[in-house]
């Protein structure tokens, strides 16, 4: 069995974001990067499947981006992926979902993957498009938003998260692509021996142009802070003073404190 996991490196979402020079996206300086949270669930689920099948499947982890993404590739290798593909693209932030999906599909095509795991979306773009677009380009069946995954004899049983806590159970045959939702599993922390072992694992490098030269279908402008609405007040300062202020406000504006 041959498994592909697609991961993205994203900034820490607690960061203070500023627009880049053209306001197409954020300025990368002073940002700390990490693995997209949704993708951690994807890596973990792939590794669990490998363990379930007695270590037989080979897991390839793929990431697109500048050299900094090697950090998350190494984390995925330390979590249990076997080999990696780094699609070296310093210009990744200017690519839209269609282009990213086209690159992934071009890499996966002809490489006999049985299962592809992706996050349901990235934390920074949040468009929830790339996984399904790549599946469509490959002609793979796909299901999104997994909070449950089981595999036996070429059949995936997927539990999708719907609205209001309801779930939907779906079955599909491999080859297939699934996108992972938060809470699917509890992603492991890489252990020191596994971090050491990961250093010996192969990272193959490709240029995006070798795989796809699809033009974008969308452009991005006016990256900015969200507009603050309403009459909310922001208070800062010493904790004791803040507590006093909050009590006064609650007494004045709500009927819940006497």
């Amino acid at each position: 069995m041959n498994i592909l996991v697609c991961i993205k490196q994203v900034p820490d979402m607690e960061s203070h974001f500023r627009p880049n020079g053209t306001a197409t996206w954020f300025d990368e300086s002073n940002l700390a990067f990490r693995m997209n949270e949704y993708d951690e669930y994807a890596v973990e689920e792939a590794v669990r499947l490998k363990e379930q099948l007695g270590g037989n499947p080979e897991i390839t982890v793929l990431s697109i981006g500048p050299d900094r993404v090697i950090e998350v590739i190494k984390k995925a290798l330390a979590m249990g992926c076997d080999r990696a593909v780094h699609i070296q693209d310093p210009d990744v932030a200017s690519k839209d979902s269609w282009q990213i999906a086209s690159i992934i599909a071009a890499y996966a095509r002809g490489r006999q993957f049985d299962l592809i795991f992706t996050g349901m979306q990235s934390q920074d773009r949040g468009s929830a498009q790339v996984g399904v677009l790549a599946a469509e380009l490959l002609g793979f069946p796909s299901v999104t938003t997994l909070v449950g995954f089981a595999y036996a004899d070429g059949v995936v049983t997927a539990t999708r998260e719907l609205e209001g806590g309801v779930k939907g159970k779906v079955r599909l045959r491999t080859p297939a692509l699934v996108t992972c939702q938060l809470g699917l599993n509890a992603p492991r922390y890489p252990t020191l021996p596994n971090i050491m072992k990961a250093k010996k694992k192969e990272i193959a490098t490709f240029q995006p142009g070798e795989l796809s030269s699809e033009p974008p279908l969308t452009g991005s402008t006016a990256f900015r802070h969200h507009e603050k609405k309403g009459s909310g007040v922001v208070i800062e300062g010493d904790i004791a003073e803040l507590v006093e202020k909050v009590i006064v406000i609650l007494k004045e504006k709500t009927a819940v404190l006497r």
Binding site: F17, L217, T218, G219, T221, R224, H225, H226
Partner: peptide
């Protein structure tokens, strides 16, 4: 926003405009 669409990003902390070209 005119012919563009306003969407959230970075966990809804930020906004941007997306302009389709098809």
């Amino acid at each position: 926003a005119g012919s563009a669409y306003v969407v959230g990003c970075c966990n809804a902390k930020m906004h941007r405009n997306v302009t389709p070209s098809t």
